[in-house]
Design a binder for these strands. Structure first.
Lengths: 192, 192
DNA sequence: TGTTTTTCTTAATGTACCATAAGTATTTTT
DNA sequence: AAAAATACTTATGGTACATTAAGAAAAACA
């Protein structure tokens, strides 16, 4: 099993010796997801932290008009979770599924909690990760309230240049908060 | 100086002995803010973590049409920060000011970093805090994309029953993402 | 206590984006 | 390679919200 991407992601923030690395990887579960396969469905409890090593997942809600709204894309190297459900054990509001064939590692919450006690450095790791995510969520929120649809599209292209090439336009539209029809029109009308 | 609210907030998540508590409080700076006084202005670097002990602060952006959009309210017991600026040292996009006369404690970032090394339990504290904030931001984002203006208003009332009584309607409008005129109309037209 | 500032309301007009529909192109599946 | 599913485009009409303006009420200030 190839843990290299995951381990290098961890050691960007904390040092691990051989023994610590082995203990960490012993907690990991590997899973392959087919396109459209669910990792989490609304109403279930999100009991694990998931790290993507290949492919691309997404989290999204479905509103009462059955319209999907994408909250996050998770290509290789990203984590994905319904944090409220994970922390409190409440039913998830988010769905998480694979946009293409993907590979993930996940850690069950009780194992992660043990890990914090056994190797407290992981508290630091998660603290740093949490702060970075929070920064991203704050700025996404700012963009959503302060920018027009076209500006949000440009922001997306700038922030995720690799995703814009691989994702269907429909998914991008859902992320920036417009209908696919409107995005199509916008891209084919706007001259500058 | 009364540290009790702040310390009880900390000890909800980690235990501190006398010495640890003393060291922690030795890092705190107390400040009183007048109504409308700024704690952070767009373009400055957010170099401290701020905890509110009385009154109420808010963070907000100003868009290119000079409209204010409130990102967060911070009444007593809440933290407030421009996380991207704090983590990376980049210029803040957020403004933070006081909606009424308020009291805060703040910790400078270098002191907080030292605290993590000297009392690693604080890594755990911040990790938990970060996860809770992330949960809140995820769910706020969901509400923003999946709910109508009226539903967002109701959600706000449910989530912050105390704030709804004290805040000017104008500030609530800015938080839920509508103009004050529209909120007024909505509240005086909607029968149910 | 009067004056200024801020907040709230009402109403007319305007617009960014949505809903629906229907056709074409592309990808996936068999 | 055919069939089916999905993705993208174009067009028409509709709506949830914004903008502007202006007056009334309430709060802050001097």
């Amino acid at each position: 099993m190839d843990y290299s991407l995951f381990l290098s992601h961890i050691t960007r923030h904390i040092d691990l010796n051989k023994e610590e690395g082995d203990y960490f990887t012993s907690l990991l579960h590997y899973k392959k997801l087919k396109k459209k396969q669910f990792l989490l469905e609304e109403g279930e409890v999100n009991t694990k932290s998931t790290f993507v090593t290949s492919g691309c997942l997404r989290s999204y809600v479905i509103d009462k008009n059955t319209v999907e709204h994408v909250l996050q894309f998770a290509p290789a190297g990203w984590w994905i979770v319904d944090m409220r459900s994970y922390v409190t054990g409440s039913p998830a509001r988010l769905n998480i599924d694979a946009l293409e064939e993907s590979e993930i590692f996940y850690i069950n919450k009780p194992d992660f909690e043990d890990l914090y006690l056994r190797i407290p450095k992981f508290e630091r790791f998660s603290r740093i990760l949490g702060q970075n995510s929070l920064a991203a969520y704050q700025y996404r929120q700012i963009d959503n309230v302060a920018l027009s649809a076209m500006e949000r599209y440009r922001q997306f292209c700038q922030l995720y240049p690799s995703l814009i090439k691989t994702l269907p336009q429909k998914q991008v539209a859902s992320y920036i908060g417009v209908t696919p029809e409107f995005l199509s029109k916008m891209l084919n009308t706007t001259l500058i």
